[in-house]
C-alpha cells in the first residue's frame, strides 16, 4: 500500500475533527456486540428469573423463602452466580458507562422519539447500575447471609423497604430497569438486523412494551406485597430449614 500511495496529497496538516473509519481494525466490534448480547443473555434472562422469583412474595413469606431456598439448591450455584450474573453484569455496566461517556446526547436540540429512547437508555442504565451496586452489596454480601438462611429473605427485604427513601429507590429502579431491559430488547433486534423494516420495528416495539410493562407490574406488585400485603413478616419464615439444602416438597407455585 505504501508503495502506491498517492504523491503529495494536497492537505498536509493532520486531520481535525472526527476520524474516518478504521476499516477492519481494532476489537471494539467484539466488545460492543458482547455488551449488546450480554444485556439479553444472561442478564436479561436473569432479570426475568429474578422478577418471577420475587413475585413469590405475593404468596407470602413462606412461599418466597421456599423460592430462595430452591434457587440456592441449584447445582454449582455459586459458580453459576458469578459466571452468569456478577461478571456479565459488571461487564455490561462497566462497558455501558464507557458507551455513555462517549455519546453526545442532543435530545434538547432534536426532541424526537428515538432520540429520547437513546437518552433514556443511558439514564435508566445508570440508575440501574447505581441501584444494583447497593442492592447486591446490602442484600447479597452484607447483613444476614440469605443463601444459608433463605427463610429470612422476606424479612430482610421488608426491613430494607421500611425506609421510605429505600422504598422510593426500589420503585424508581424497578421502573428504570424494566424500561432499560424492554427497550434493550427492541434495540437488540433493530441493531442485529432482526427487525430492519419500520413496520417490523413498530410491531416488535409493542411486544417489548408488553414484556417491559408486565415485568414492571410484577416487580412493583412484589414490592407492594413485601411492604403492605404481608406486614410484620416473621424474621425467619422457614425456621426448620436453616441451611439444609433439601428441596421443597413441590414447586412453590403449585402450592399457592
Amino acid at each position: 500500500m505504501a508503495a502506491s500511495a498517492p504523491p503529495a496529497p494536497p492537505s498536509t496538516t493532520r486531520r481535525r475533527g472526527v476520524q474516518p473509519l478504521r476499516a477492519a481494525e481494532g476489537h471494539s466490534y467484539l466488545w460492543r456486540r458482547l455488551h449488546s448480547l450480554s444485556g439479553i443473555v444472561p442478564i436479561g434472562a436473569f432479570l426475568i428469573e429474578h422478577i418471577l422469583s420475587n413475585f413469590e412474595t405475593w404468596n407470602g413469606p413462606v412461599a418466597y423463602g421456599k423460592q430462595v431456598l430452591f434457587l440456592n439448591s441449584l447445582p454449582l450455584v455459586r459458580i453459576l452466580e458469578w459466571v452468569f450474573i456478577f461478571i456479565p453484569l459488571a461487564f455490561h455496566a462497566g462497558y455501558g458507562v464507557y458507551i455513555w461517556l462517549r455519546g453526545r446526547s442532543n435530545v434538547n436540540v432534536y426532541p424526537w422519539a428515538g432520540n429520547w429512547g437513546y437518552y433514556a437508555q443511558r439514564i435508566t442504565g445508570l440508575i440501574a447500575f447505581a441501584y444494583i451496586i447497593q442492592h447486591v452489596w446490602r442484600q447479597r454480601f452484607t447483613g444476614v447471609d440469605l443463601p444459608h438462611n433463605p427463610g429470612m429473605a422476606f424479612h430482610k427485604v421488608q426491613v430494607e423497604l421500611h425506609n421510605p427513601w429505600m422504598l422510593a429507590i426500589y420503585v424508581i429502579a424497578m421502573i428504570a430497569t424494566c424500561w432499560h431491559f424492554a427497550y434493550g430488547i427492541w434495540l437488540f433486534a433493530a441493531k442485529w438486523g432482526i427487525t430492519p423494516g419500520d413496520r417490523a420495528r413498530k410491531r416488535f416495539g409493542y411486544i417489548c412494551a408488553v414484556v417491559g410493562t408486565g415485568l414492571c407490574i410484577m416487580g412493583l406488585a412484589s414490592i407492594y406485597a413485601v411492604v403492605w400485603k404481608y406486614p410484620n413478616a416473621p424474621v425467619n419464615a422457614l425456621p426448620d430449614q436453616h441451611s439444609s439444602l433439601t428441596l421443597p416438597a413441590s414447586t412453590s407455585l403449585a402450592t399457592s
Binding site: 476520524q19 474516518p20 473509519l21 478504521r22 476499516a23 477492519a24 481494525e25 481494532g26 476489537h27 471494539s28 466490534y29 460492543r32 456486540r33 458507551i99 455519546g103 442532543n106 432534536y110 424526537w112 422519539a113 428515538g114 432520540n115 429512547g117 437513546y118 437518552y119 437508555q121 434495540l187 433493530a190 441493531k191
Partner: peptide, 23 residues
C-alpha cells in the same frame, strides 16, 4: 470486504439507534 471494514473501530457497532439520522 465492506462488511469487514464496517466491523472496524468506529464501525457499525457504534450506532446507538437514536434514529436521528432518518428523521
Amino acid at each position: 470486504e465492506r462488511l469487514r471494514a464496517l466491523a472496524g473501530d468506529g464501525g457499525i457497532q457504534e450506532c446507538g439507534f437514536a434514529q436521528n439520522c432518518v428523521q
